Every structure is written in C-alpha cells, then in structure tokens.
Simulated assay, not measured.
Amino acid sequence: MRVFFDRELDTAATYWRIFRRDGIVIGFTSHDRDLVFGGIRHRAAPGMVPAAIRMTSDLSEDSAGVDGTLSHDSIRATDLESGLFDQASIEIGIVDWQAFDSYAIYSGTLGRIEDDRRGFSAELRSAKAILEQDLVPRTSPTCRAVFCGRGCGLSAIRFTQRVNLAAFDADLNRVSFDGLPSANYIDGQVRFLDGPQTGMAFGILSANGGWLTLDRPLSDQTSIGTPAELREGCDHTLATCSGRFGNAINFRGEPFLPGNDLLARYGQGAG
C-alpha cells in the first residue's frame, strides 16, 4: 500500500466522493486538474477544503467537515435547497495524482449543511453516529410506528398508487396528481420516478382543492407528466388507526396514559 507523506515532496492531493441517494456519484479533488481513478471522475475544486478530521478509537463520535464554494456546477444552491444532498454518503481520502494510488481516511454521511449564498459548509457524520440514537421507546399519545413500516403491520403497496404529475405551483410548493382525492394523503409522501429529483421522498403537509403542499422545495425543472408514487398518510391517532385502517391491534402508543399534568394537580379532599 502506498505510504503518503514519507518524503519531502509528495504528489498527494485530497479527494471527496459524494454518493447521493438518487444514485448520482460526484467526485472532487483539491488538485488543479481533474483526476480519474476508481471508475470515478474527480473534478478539480481547489476551493473545497476539508476541515479538521477527528477520529478516535473509542465509541465517541468522529467529526469532520468540508467547506466550499457554490460556484461549482455540481453543487448548486437549488440542489441543496431541494434536498438532493440530504443524508448522502461521503468519502474523503488522499490520492497520488501521478500513480493514482489512493487511501480513504474518512467515510460517513452528510449532516447539517449551511449555505450563506457565497459558500457552504457541511457537517460529516461517521458510522458511530448511530450509537447516539435513543433506542428506548418513550410513551406517547400517538403511534410511534412509521406508517406501513416496521411495527405498523400494514402493506405499503395497498396504500400506494402510481400517478402522473398534472400540475405544480413552484411559488407555493404544491403539486396535483390526476384528480385523486386529497383528503387521505395528508402526512403521506410523494416519490418521483423520473426527473431531477428521482427517488426523493417528499412529505405532504396539507391538502386543499386537489393540491398537495410538499415539505421541501420542488425543482423548477420538473415536467408535467412526471411519474410518481403517491402514498396515503396517517395522523398516528388511535381513532384513525382503528376507524380508517382497522389496525388498532398494532397501535404503538398510549393515548389513555395520564400525562405529567396529573402529578402537578392539587389534591382535593371529599367534601
């Protein structure tokens, strides 16, 4: 294996690989020309620099970051706003720009991304981040299970339809599909099967007059007629679970458990 920085003058450059959830892979390098290795073209991006990378041998979270400019065609402000880079996997390493030997020094996922319209900074999260998740269920009046997910027991296919985009309003960030009734799609999701946001899941915030308002910006390059999967929603209440779905047996909540306000009440004696 190539040993880097074992000489006074080394032909080394850093590289970044971003693996988006829609299947797009983007590579960058700090070198002054594009480098192709590992089957990926890494575009020259001298303006992108890695922040300090901290890696530990214990269970504490590793940390890293990357700063860059929004001038590169592969990372645009509209793409960041549309969520194309949300939870993307990332790899940072060193490459010999002559022999193309490379070594990955960090891998993780993109966390918080900050954009000031002139540049961006991204927080990177390693695989240890999963250790920070609270795996102990907490009581709640509503169902904690994901609709049609683990613990719910309902089939996603049963409540999902293939539709085509009939219209969209970019200003209000809302869409309309094939004249379907909108009442049952609040808290549901839309997943486009073609176009610039292929594979991304959009949450449905509200429904009004056949329009569905989405929870993240819709690309202005989306075309009328774009196919999508539209899944019904659930408000996670016991009434909906029982009355609409007949699935109360799988309800993951405690709607009748007294809340903390009961402990704060004054005692009342018999009069």
Rank of each mutant, 00 (worst) to 15 (best):
I40D: 01
L131D: 03
P181M: 12
I18S: 06
G39K: 11
S60W: 12
A99N: 11
A239Q: 03
A248Q: 03
P258R: 12
A104P: 09
M55K: 13
D194I: 01
Q268T: 14
A264Y: 08
D116M: 13
L59W: 06
G83C: 13
T240K: 02
C148H: 03
G93V: 11
T109E: 09
D34Q: 10
E8L: 10
A13Y: 02
G199L: 05
R138P: 01
L180S: 06
C241Y: 01
A127I: 07
R244I: 11
G38T: 01
S71H: 07
V25L: 03
F256H: 05
G39Q: 09
D235L: 09
E232L: 03
G209H: 10
W97K: 04
L135W: 03
G119R: 08
I113D: 02
E132L: 15
F5S: 07
D220L: 12
D73R: 13
D62N: 15
R252I: 07
R191M: 15
G151L: 03
R43G: 08
D22M: 11
D58K: 12
A145E: 00
Y103M: 14
S102P: 03
V146K: 05
I113W: 00
Q87F: 15
G210R: 12
G259S: 09
R112V: 15
R265Y: 05
F85C: 11
R244Q: 13
V36Y: 05
R144S: 15
I53K: 02
P227N: 10
D171H: 02
S155C: 10
G267A: 15
G47L: 13
D86L: 00
T11R: 07
L124S: 03
A201R: 06
R112I: 15
I53L: 13
D178F: 00
W16M: 15
R76G: 14
S223L: 08
F168I: 11
S89M: 12
P255N: 08
R17C: 13
I94F: 11
D101I: 00
G243T: 12
L124D: 00
L257D: 00
D169S: 14
R138C: 08
G246T: 04
F37Y: 13
F28I: 14
L59H: 05
D220G: 10
T78F: 05
D73S: 10
R174E: 04
V146T: 12
D58P: 04
S223M: 10
N247M: 10
A88F: 03
D34W: 01
P196W: 02
G243V: 04
Y266P: 06
L84Q: 01
G23N: 06
I90C: 02
T198W: 00
Y266D: 10
Q161S: 13
W97C: 05
A64I: 12
D194E: 09
G267E: 06
D22P: 06
R162Q: 11
D220S: 14
E81M: 14
G119H: 01
A122L: 04
N260Q: 08
R2I: 15
R216G: 10
E8C: 07
F5T: 08
S223V: 05
